[in-house]
Amino acid sequence: MNTELTLVIMAAGLGSRFGGDKQLAALGPAGEPMLVLSIMSAIRSGFQRAVLVIRPELETELTEILTRFLPADFAYHFCYQALTDLPEAAQLADISHRLKPWGTAHALWSARHLVKGPMAVINADDFYGDSAFASLAKGLSMRPTEWMMVAYPIELTLSEHGGVNRGLCQVENGQLKSVAEWLNIAEQAGELVGDGPQGHASLPPASLVSMTCWGFSPSIFDVIKRELTEFIGQQDQQPKSECYLPAIVQAGIEQGLPVYVDVACEPWLGVTYPQDTVWVKQKLTELLSD
């Protein structure tokens, strides 16, 4: 098996709540976007290449940014998250009404031809810290055929400016037992609440969440193929429905695949709303300035 470590960055999002392309926002101390900070962290941890899943209209500007900030010898590749790039069995569905691609599981599916070995998978617009990539590199090198994640305490991942979406994790003995997508998580009247699989409910403040900081072997693509095909068969008349990566991971767990968990020891930072940018820039400057 190819053991070269690849960083897959999902950078095709529209940033509807942010009001623009978050993946291009100049947030670092030198004006770097978050994805550049992540790539630099990954390089320091031993990752040899990156694959960026993007929309075609972002390629020119991203190329300029990466050329400016990255070492000249670091290999990176672009691929597009195209609405019609689906598993063969799903191509029979009528998607003429579809308004956008199929979510984060579909984004990773788009990278399948460019990844042959163990991979880390992250969002383009989040800051994870060096230690997260060190954990991923160590885990993927030790267990290149297994899956893993770096989880974050939920209270460190919220926004003061509105609700956020998170994958809520149940962890036992260092392994992930379940992960479920929760939407619109926010603090109300002194407690955390959100919309989970069973509807609106409260969450324990010590909960661990997925911030899309995953480690996978290429076996993830087989699970995506099956689950995405089933999802599209069930949801093909919904113009905005999305198949999330936590659902794919949950399907793998139910198949008996172990998913190892490390807990982050550095802050996660991200911008969900425009109002988040000032605080995030300040924190990044504090964390990264010499």
Rank of each mutant, 00 (worst) to 15 (best):
L35M: 15
E254Q: 12
T272S: 01
V150L: 00
S202D: 00
G174S: 15
S96I: 06
V271P: 03
Q81Y: 06
L37S: 06
A25N: 07
V36R: 03
G46T: 01
L86R: 10
I185P: 01
P29S: 06
R112L: 13
F69A: 06
Y76S: 00
S131P: 15
S131W: 15
A151S: 14
T212C: 14
E181R: 14
L208K: 01
D290R: 14
P267Y: 13
R44Q: 12
G270H: 02
G31T: 01
A90P: 14
L35E: 13
P101I: 00
L156Y: 15
A75F: 08
E88R: 15
H161S: 01
L83M: 07
E181I: 15
P153V: 02
W214T: 11
R143K: 13
L257P: 12
M149T: 08
L99V: 02
E64T: 10
H161T: 00
A93H: 12
D130L: 13
D94W: 09
E57C: 00
P29L: 07
L52H: 02
F133Y: 08
L58C: 04
I185D: 01
G129Q: 10
T145E: 15
Y260S: 01
D290N: 15
P118I: 11
L62H: 10
C79G: 05
H106P: 08
P56E: 08
P29G: 06
A107I: 04
D130T: 09
K100R: 05
A124C: 10
V51D: 03
D130K: 11
P274Q: 00
E286D: 10
C265H: 11
T60C: 05
V51A: 04
A264T: 04
G163W: 02
S159N: 00
H161F: 07
L287Q: 10
Y76M: 04
H97V: 09
K177R: 12
E181C: 14
A180M: 06
R226M: 15
T285A: 13
G190S: 08
E155L: 04
G252T: 10
K100I: 03
M40S: 10
F78P: 02
E187P: 00
W109P: 06
L288S: 01
A25S: 10
S178T: 12
G196P: 09
P246W: 06
S289Q: 12
K100Y: 05
V271E: 07
P87G: 11
S241R: 09
L52W: 00
L58N: 05
G199A: 07
V115D: 04
D126R: 12
P153E: 03
L269V: 13
F18T: 02
